[in-house]
Design a protein around this nucleic acid. Structure first.
Lengths: 198, 198
DNA sequence: TAATAGGGTGAACGATAGGTCACCTGCTCT
DNA sequence: AGAGCAGGTGACCTATCGTTCACCCTATTA
């Protein structure tokens, strides 16, 4: 109960910032969504900007815990079909998890304004996924599942189209189903092109 | 001189909206950047929202003129090397043209708030490029330059990585040079994988 | 030349923004 | 039991927001 409200404020901030952006969010509304009055918020954070920075801290930490550490790397698939399954699993999580969706939206909206948001956005949207799949593809090449090629290039070629579809889902959620099908179709196409298995 | 100011207001709006977003932009600053006082703006537009809508109208029209019409389609390359050259040419334009950069940024910042911005964003960032390259790849398949495959899938696989790099340049302009090299490397990789020519 | 209208000014409007402050309340700790 | 404090309230502050309005200037036109 001590810093419970403090965390709830960050939750609400993530929700509001992801919908209306930092500039488009006001403290009164944010407080009201928590059932308290705006001055109450200032018992926990000294300013709107402090909330923003705390939220970013949390997002950076969250990213580090969930995607940045080596132990959270998904296992190298044992077959090409497993690559598709792994991909679909990862995409399903990232596309339906409300918190992750909101994190992506916030980073999208604030990437030009805040340096840390910009850096985290690049990780989230580009380099992070690419690095993960670079390792996966290296492993798959060793196992003889993929043609020997530059694993970084393959990871780039594999993850960026998927990332584009994830962004599409954030933008137009009604296209989510279609986008998921497209991810799967693309994954199978990729395997046809680069795969060595039967 | 008649509606000169009216157009200059839209130019300034594009600049400010692309930097600070709609909510983060105020009329006083916008007017000041044009050397007039804020009430002057209201001689040309009845509200901030009217400016936004006029800007979107202009952007939609601009997109239709420059990318949407059939006559502006780039010619089908006669060699694989030409595909890379064409790609680099298109990327160079889109990456260095200040107006296009600002258009992308505005669409990025307002895609969750405004339906028309959302639709134009999807065109700009995904479907537009894909459609253009679908036609190009169909042509190149007919010419025997590319392996026969689903041209839509190839266009998707070709344009989305490039689009990701364009977004990277918008976000971190200091990485532009590196990103351009990556576009070229990716283009050549793509050709190695899908190309039929020598 | 007198009237008109487009385009610009500066003061002022109400609304709302972020933020402060005195006060209250209920829990914990001595 | 009393002190202290974390956490919440509501009134209030100032700055700034979008917007309006009366006024002015200047070029065009009847």
């Amino acid at each position: 109960m001590a810093n419970d409200t403090k965390e709830r404020i960050l939750d609400a901030a993530l929700e509001m910032f992801s919908q209306n952006g930092y500039a488009g969010t006001n403290i009164r509304e944010l407080s009201a969504s928590l059932g308290l009055v705006k001055s109450g918020v200032y018992k926990h954070y000294e300013s709107k900007e402090a909330i923003w920075n705390a939220l970013l801290d949390q997002m950076i930490a969250y990213y580090g815990e969930h995607f940045g550490s080596a132990e959270h790397l998904p296992p190298v698939p044992d077959s090409l079909e497993e690559l598709t399954l792994l991909t679909m699993h990862m995409v399903n999580i990232t596309i339906y998890d409300e918190k992750i969706i909101m994190m992506r939206k916030v980073l999208t909206l604030e990437q030009y304004r805040d340096v840390r948001a910009r850096e985290l956005a690049t990780k989230h949207f580009l380099t992070g996924l690419t690095e993960i799949f670079t390792r996966i593809f290296m492993g798959m090449m060793e196992k003889g599942l993929l043609r020997k090629d530059d694993p970084k290039m393959l990871a780039f070629a594999y993850t960026t189209p998927i990332s584009a579809l994830i962004h599409l889902c954030d933008r137009e959620p009604e296209k989510t189903e279609e986008a998921i099908k497209q991810v799967e179709a693309f994954s199978r196409h990729f395997i046809r092109v680069y795969g060595r298995g039967d």
